[in-house]
Design a protein around this nucleic acid. Structure first.
Lengths: 228, 228
DNA sequence: GCATCACCGAGAGCACTGCTCTCGCCGACG
DNA sequence: CGTCGGCGAGAGCAGTGCTCTCGGTGATGC
């Protein structure tokens, strides 16, 4: 059973992470200072190292939390009873909205990787959640017979381990449409990143409309059409 | 006329930038240290400030140079005599190749923006070059009559100032295809970023084939088909 | 119940960073 | 030939991540 010390430790760990997240939201990842969160917590900087052995470990924690947050946003935006094309657009919108609400955390996930820092294994399950939602939409559509049947199946492009994440198995799904799903998935984040990082400034008049149009085009690319 | 002092100054400025670029390639942007380049140059750190008033100014210089480098790579990969779909794929491949050869510089351009640092106006002309090449391919195809005519023209989505960069004016070009061109443009970088930043690990068996397939799909989205 | 042991917070300290200021030197220009 | 502006060097400030050592204290074994 957890002793009082254990509970205190868990509490303080969470408190540090929360304060770090707050600081992240204001100064961004490069400006995140372990000493600053220690100061704000009223403790010596060295004491923080009892809870996070290094700044990178703290960042890893924040990364996992952020992946889970955007994943949860995508999941809760998905209404499995809605038509597939509408589900697709709703999930994309939720991702964009979360990114706009948490730009620094988004940059931490989908911006430049921290040099000399390779994402630990622990991040993978959380990182995959958004893609899994999109894959589920695709798979449900296939199983409902709403996807065009493929003439000749292409295989060998997608890793077998990734197949179940991309809609699972179905006659309407081959590696060609799975590949297009991967393209659509990365395109979603390409568009969101470009918008968030200012690459679109001065290019488009109505960002909302552009985004909806783009996501609808991507849905069509994988065989999801508003009508069917 | 330029005095000896002026020439020396220009030379030293370039030397600092070159050394900084070399350091960028090994330790990445966050690890770029002004003191380190000064050390490697055998001069006091304070002397470097005669040439770049701040670390951010140095970074800006590197950003502009990198935009120009990837822009030049895209331009020299474009053979205006080739069929549009082939031109499109060639340009995309060149962008990907440059990114793979200069991952840290790529991350500097298309990764997380440096917080508290907004890209100065000077970067815009260089930043726009890759997009301009793709826009030119699209415009040439339109003027050659290789694009499907649009039934009813949609307008008001793309900023007028950006129209000439997206192929110029032509009956075959309206804001719907221009919007899809913007989508394809950002998708190119979405795919390259995901591949470079490790988001695709364990998803695809043949990255080259996947990329070619994806870029061909994007070309088709804007109306560029291998046959035509 | 007491001794022990592990954890925990604090402080000092190291090596490093960006940046500023002041000091002499020296080349260019009037 | 004198003056003035740029230029390099050095010291210094405030801040960083991280380490180590030092007491205190809560949890555990006998």
């Amino acid at each position: 059973m957890p002793t009082a010390r254990d509970r205190a430790r868990a509490e303080l760990t969470a408190e540090i992470a929360d304060l770090a997240r707050a600081q992240l939201a204001t100064v961004g990842a490069p400006g995140l200072s372990l000493r600053a969160v220690a100061r704000e917590l009223g403790m010596a900087s060295s004491a923080v190292y009892r809870y996070f052995p290094s700044r990178d470990e703290l960042l890893t924690r924040l990364i996992i939390d952020a992946y889970d947050a955007i994943g949860a946003a995508a999941e809760s935006a998905d209404d499995p009873t809605a038509p597939p094309a509408a589900r697709w657009l709703a999930v994309c919108r939720a991702v964009r909205r979360w990114a706009q609400d948490h730009p620094h955390e988004y940059a931490l996930l989908y911006g430049s990787p921290v040099p000399g820092y390779s994402a630990p294994r622990d991040t993978v399950p959380s990182a995959v959640r958004v893609g899994a939602v999109l894959g589920r939409v695709l798979g449900d559509a296939a199983r409902a017979g709403l996807l065009p049947e493929t003439a000749h199946r292409t295989t060998g492009l997608v890793e077998p381990a990734a197949v179940d994440l991309l809609g699972g198995d179905d006659p309407a799904l081959d590696d060609a449409v799975r590949g297009r799903a991967l393209l659509a998935w990365s395109s979603l984040f390409g568009v969101v990143s470009f918008e968030l990082f200012g690459q679109f400034t001065g290019a488009v008049t109505d960002a909302d409309r552009f985004f909806d149009d783009a996501m609808t085009d991507l849905a069509g690319l994988v065989g999801l059409h508003p009508a069917g």
